[in-house]
Every structure is written in structure tokens, then in C-alpha cells.
Design a protein around this nucleic acid. Structure first.
Lengths: 149, 149
DNA sequence: GTAGATGCAAAATGTTTGCTCTAAT
DNA sequence: ATTAGAGCAAACATTTTGCATCTAC
């Protein structure tokens, strides 16, 4: 687990620092596509002297060595996905939650048969927008309280 | 053309101001998913007293009445798409160019048959990442000049 | 005349950078 | 001992906000 991380760092000629370890562990434990600020808040509890700049630099480093993939959320922050396999996203338009989904029907799109002219394809990702279960419950509750008031 | 715009504004109870007209015309004339800054630079040529804040507020307004759809580019700005029909994107990883594509094979994904549990789907969009024709040409030129030097 | 829009400047975000000091190797 | 990395503060880029002024209706 953490051994794999140390392995990857060594291969990339990166020093193994306590900051990098604590950030990596945090990423392993939570899979809800956090942004830098969120990671900072959480990591600070175990490592109070860590700085936000270190979080940004470390996330950047992790992206470069292929440990994370970044994406832009609708809310305007860069978020980080520990899942670097080919997968797709369910994005909640209310709470901005992102749920990973892997499915052959999305993986095997007939991209080659599209009229893309001179565009050279590397990969594709499907983003499915909608409302997550939690937000559906919340909006039902709101509607209920609105009609009873 | 501009009549349709006036129509939509009236329906939404929006005043028709010269600023809104010039921004809308700019959006009609260029379809390459500009960000606020780009629109500002262009619009300022015809309307030098316009402010960037007005651009932001106007784009926001246009999104709210369904005239534009916003999306976040990898480069970190919000970009605006005048194409509000169901369509998909080719994104160049080098120059961040975004090319629209519409195709049945992408429109008719079997979303309903996916195991989404309690996620309520609204729509989906496919993002195809790769290298655009222009950037392919540029990198070939660079490689050529590197080998001859 | 009045509500709503503009333009300015200031503030708020999110992120990056330069530099000194510290720690991993 | 050397070099990479951490932490701080300052800079930067993008976007939002408050408010006084102006303008479409």
C-alpha cells in the first residue's frame, strides 16, 4: 500500500518526505475527488505545520508521476482523482459531488468511426450530469417543509 | 438573428442595452468557446468604455436565460459555448482548443442501462482529448528544426 | 420616474512563485 | 555534504461584489 508509493517515488527520483506520505495516505482513505483546500484541512489535523503551498506542489508532483489525475469542477477548483484507470464521472449539479463509474458501454465508444478529420485522439471521458441520491432526498424534504409551513 | 435575441431578452424581462447587444453579436460571430477576458478584448474594440465586470455579469445573465452554456477549461478559465444543443467536445491538450462535435453514436449512449443506483440523470457529454491538427503540424515543425540544428 | 444595468475599485478565490531554511539521501 | 523539498509571504489570475452613476423603459 504505502510500499507501492515508496516504490513509485524512488522510480521517479523523489524524496520520501513525511508530508508526501501523509498527503498520499489521505488520498487513499478518501475517494471523493477532493480539491487542494479540502486535502489541506484534513491533513493539517495530523500534520499541523504543513502549508497549503506544499499541498499544491505535492499534488502537482503526484499528477506528473501519474499517481493522480486532475480535473476542473464546475465550482471552479481543480480536483484530484486517485482513480487513474479509464473511467467516467457522474456529476451532481447541486452539490458538485463526483462519482466514478466504469462500464464497457462507456469505454467502448466507436470513436474511430467519427468524422474527426485531423484530430488525433488520446482518450475520452463521459460526464453524466444529474442529481445525486443525497440531493434528491434533500430537495424532497425542502418541498415537504415548504408545503407544511 | 438579433431579433431573436431581443425576443429572448423581453421574455426574460431583461433590458436591451448596447452592451448586451455587442456582447451577443461577438458571441455569434466567433464560435471558438472564448473566456470572459477574450470577449472583453474583442468587444472593447467596438465599445471601448465597456468594463470587464459587465462582461462577467452579462455572460452570467446569458447563461441563466439559456443563451450560453459554460464549462471549465483545463487552463482554469470558464469558457462559453453558444451551442446549447446536445453536443460533445474535442479538446486539444496542447492549445486547449475546443471543437464541437455532434454525432448519433455519442448522443445515443445506453445511459439508462447503466448501474447508476439513485443518481438521476439529466444529460451527458463526451469529452475526447487529443491533439488538434494545428498542434500536430507545429510539433512536426519543431521536431524537424531540432534534427536539422 | 423607477427599476435595472453599467463601470469602477476593492475584495475574494484559487493557485503559483521566489526565497530562505530544513531535512532526506 | 549535497540537493530536493517545506514553509512562508507575496504575487498572480480569475471572478465576484458593493456602490454610485447612468440609462432603458
Amino acid at each position: 500500500m504505502i510500499d507501492r508509493f515508496i516504490q513509485i517515488c524512488k522510480e521517479a527520483n523523489l524524496n520520501i518526505t513525511p508530508q508526501r506520505i501523509v498527503i498520499y495516505k489521505e488520498l487513499l482513505n478518501h475517494h471523493e475527488h477532493p480539491d487542494a483546500e479540502t486535502i489541506y484541512r484534513r491533513v493539517k489535523e495530523q500534520f499541523p505545520t504543513i502549508s497549503l503551498a506544499t499541498i499544491y506542489k505535492t499534488l502537482d508532483t503526484f499528477v506528473k508521476i501519474g499517481l493522480l489525475s486532475p480535473f476542473r469542477s464546475g465550482a471552479g477548483t481543480t480536483r484530484y482523482d486517485t482513480n487513474i484507470e479509464h473511467h467516467h464521472h457522474l456529476v451532481c449539479i447541486h452539490c458538485d459531488k463526483v462519482i466514478d463509474i466504469s462500464h464497457d458501454a462507456l469505454a467502448n465508444l466507436p470513436i474511430e468511426s467519427l468524422p474527426l478529420e485531423d484530430f488525433q485522439v488520446i482518450n475520452h471521458q463521459v460526464e453524466i450530469k444529474g442529481v445525486c441520491g443525497d440531493c434528491q432526498k434533500k430537495s424532497k424534504q425542502t418541498m415537504k417543509s415548504q408545503t407544511t409551513n
